[in-house]
């Protein structure tokens, strides 16, 4: 029987959907439920990862230490994971203390063509005896050859898995099979996949990833994540069970965890809004959706036009300031007729 490791992004990717306003009560309730379900890895933190709380990408209600300390206290079976983007997170100010708070798995992420920046963070994590994964974000912006080249760097730096993220929810299943298959055939470490649901393909793409050789799959309960949300974790557990893919997760408990997210944490259940769909089509990071909607309202322009223009400019996560710039330019264009 095929086995996969499910990595749960609910308390990290879901932070985007709450404008990074996760509370201690949210973390306690969900961590207990995820732990009871036997979810192998539970990620916690700001949507953009450790050290990312800022005016530019959104201020966290809780600081990183509070989030990690709270989660750690309520996870016994599940391992505690964090998302780390070098630049937001520094080794001395952020990563060092994260280990003091009991982090087990560090997912060191970069834009899909910039794996070079992950070397020190991956090395430092390995030096502390902890597990380090490399994560290539916005992976639809690179072809499979470029992704392999970047993934090989992460492998050389000491990454014990390389995960490609469909940050914009832009993939169709054959895109996933093409890329994951190429990585799985050429890397010595396991390959993982992180889906977003902008085109309604979250589960289908995750299945395609496993069929192509992925061994680590990300999901979020009720799909609670940026934009149209992630691959819905409890659905994934059920579908994988039907396909004979072992996750080691208790389905009933996973359903309970999802109910807690819907009842106690999320403001609205993720759905494929027009804007999210356009985000997927234009290949723009799902997490931009709320910022784009606000800018569209403020400058009285069509959010869909903003997305397509951002896509044309190949804007990536961390360039949120471009949203307002594009909105203002579109407004000027309209005024000029």
């Amino acid at each position: 029987m095929k086995k996969v490791i499910i990595s749960d992004a609910t308390l990290r990717d879901g932070s985007h959907a709450l404008f990074h306003k996760l509370t201690k009560e949210h973390i306690v309730a969900y961590a207990l439920a995820a732990d009871a379900a036997g979810i192998p890895i539970v990620e916690v933190g700001h949507g953009n990862g450790l050290g990312a709380s800022s005016l530019q990408v959104g201020l966290s209600l809780l600081d990183d230490r509070e989030m990690l300390e709270t989660a750690r206290k309520h996870l016994s079976r599940s391992r505690l994971g964090i998302h780390v983007i070098p630049g937001f997170a520094t080794i001395n100010n952020d990563l060092r203390f994260a280990f003091d708070y009991g982090v087990d798995v560090v997912r060191v992420a970069s834009h899909c063509t910039e794996a070079d920046i992950t070397e020190r963070h991956i090395s430092y994590t390995r030096e502390q005896g902890k597990e380090a994964y490399g994560v290539l974000m916005m992976s639809h912006m690179a072809n499979k050859e470029v992704l392999l080249d970047e993934a090989l760097k992460m492998q050389a730096y000491g990454a014990e898995a390389v995960i490609i993220m469909d940050s914009a929810g832009a993939y169709l299943p054959h895109d996933v099979q093409d890329r994951v298959g190429h990585l799985a055939a050429n890397l010595k470490v396991p390959v993982g996949f992180h889906a977003h649901n902008n085109l309604g393909m979250g589960i289908a793409n995750s299945v395609a990833a496993v069929e192509a050789g992925a061994r680590i799959i990300d999901g979020a309960s009720r799909g609670f994540g940026a934009g149209a949300g992630n691959a819905q974790l409890e659905v994934m557990v059920a579908v994988f069970a039907r396909l004979g893919i072992e996750t080691g997760i208790d389905l009933y408990r996973a359903l309970d965890a999802a109910d807690i997210v819907e009842r106690e944490i999320m403001e609205t259940t993720p759905y494929i809004s027009s804007v999210s769909l356009v985000s997927g089509l234009s290949g723009v990071f799902s997490g931009f959706a709320r910022h784009v909607n606000l800018a569209a309202k403020e400058y009285d322009v069509d959010a869909r036009d903003i997305f397509f223009e951002l896509g044309a400019r190949k804007v990536v996560g961390g360039q949120e300031d471009k949203i307002v710039e594009v909105a203002m330019e579109l407004q000027q264009k309209i005024k000029r007729g």
Binding site: S123, R126, E127, Q128, G158
Partner: peptide
């Protein structure tokens, strides 16, 4: 140096720091 990314160096480093010795393969 034990920070080199080679298997045996990592095994020794992890053993001396009482961390599990992990082999992916």
């Amino acid at each position: 140096s034990l920070d080199k990314p080679w298997a045996i160096n990592n095994f020794i480093r992890d053993a001396l720091t009482d961390n599990d010795i992990r082999i992916i393969s």
